[in-house]
Amino acid sequence: MIEIREARKQYGDQVAVQTLNLQVNDGEIFGFIGPNGAGKTTTIKMTVGMLRPDAGSIRVNGIDVWQEPLLAKQCIGYVPDNPDVYEKLTGLQFIRFVADAYRVPLALRRQRTEELSAAFAMQDALGDLIESYSHGMRQKIVLIAALVHAPRVWMLDEPLVGLDPKASLVLKTMMREHANQGNTVFFSTHILEVAERLCDRVGIIHRGQLVACGSLDQLRTERSETLESIFMEVTEQ
């Protein structure tokens, strides 16, 4: 579960996120959408402990991210919007590096690495240097590393960008299974069709404010028929 209370972030004069209140429950896939520069990535960065909010609190599975950062991070799997990773490491070295940080036992890390690399068709590339990977392969290695410690809360910032259709389908299936097991998936996307089909609830952020939030049925009842028309409606105001 993720609880964001009165969170606010400002870069100089520019308010990136203004007084955000949001709760994402266990067993839920939450889609976070909004125009470019609306505050999606800032919200995600504050939640994973990368960016300290100017005000408010953020709790992940009941742990305050900024009071107990190490405990909170232990239950998060984070995929950034840009898969910038150490190019001079091999894929396997990178996974090992992350697994050591989360203290993943050997048996589990082997099992998870095998499962995830098979799912994303990366087994043959794990021994290669990351500098030789394509954008999609880098995205896959970041996904594998983020999920290697079997985190309960997935924080994915535009995770489908660069993935091939098969990997994209695999990830979406995994997200659904993960939520069905009572865990939390929070992800941002620009692909409204994916959000519409995959999410239990959707939040639309615009100029740092959550302008719409709820299940698709709720939003349809309150506003328009499709997510696209709802998005256009709330972001044009």
């Binding site: 150490y86 490491l89 070295q93 050591d100 203290r103 030789s132």
Partner: peptide
């Protein structure tokens, strides 16, 4: 790209993070 792809045998050990981090620094 083909030249940059060189296979390395690298078993998936478990170890202390400090050691892994020093090794990462060495590579980078």
């Amino acid at each position: 790209v083909a030249a940059r792809r060189r296979r390395r045998a690298d078993p998936l050990h478990a170890g202390s993070f400090l050691t892994t981090y020093v090794r990462k620094e060495l590579a980078c």
